[in-house]
Amino acid sequence: MIRGTVHKYGANIDTDVIIPAKYANLPTPEELGAHCLENLDDGFVKKVRTGDVLMATTNFGCGSSREQAPWSIRGAGVSCIIAKSFARIFFRNAINIALPLLECPDAVEGTESGDVLEIDLTSGKIENITKNKVFSAAPYPDFIRELIDAGGLIAYARQKIDSK
């Protein structure tokens, strides 16, 4: 179960805004996290607490394929991202490094910055504690579920290599 405060932003948040290329050579998620979203909201890193939830409207994570983007969000302490839709490379990258994300337009509509959410990743249930509302995200397709259950792509691929 995830419980955290929401930081909500708009549409088409791109990877250059999430983590500019000039920081791409920083080696750890924590160092990347210190610059997370600074081109959009330079107060984000100061506000965000470990376990908080990042929220956006459509096409979150569009732009470059840099995996530094989900790493920096994880490094900033975010436990889950909820959006109306995600850009496809970002979606893959996040799943691969086991950063949970949920597509749920209703939850995005019904939530504001500062609200507290409780999220059950297995069922896709999202509860807005502040507003006393419940939303449900579509469950992951079986294949993605398998990937997540294995603990991300590296662990999944290792299982496959070992079984060969």
Partner: peptide
């Protein structure tokens, strides 16, 4: 198509 580094690591190996 473009992918992230973890996907690419797995593709390089397998």
């Amino acid at each position: 198509t473009g992918m992230g580094s973890t996907d690419i690591a797995v593709a390089m190996a397998t």
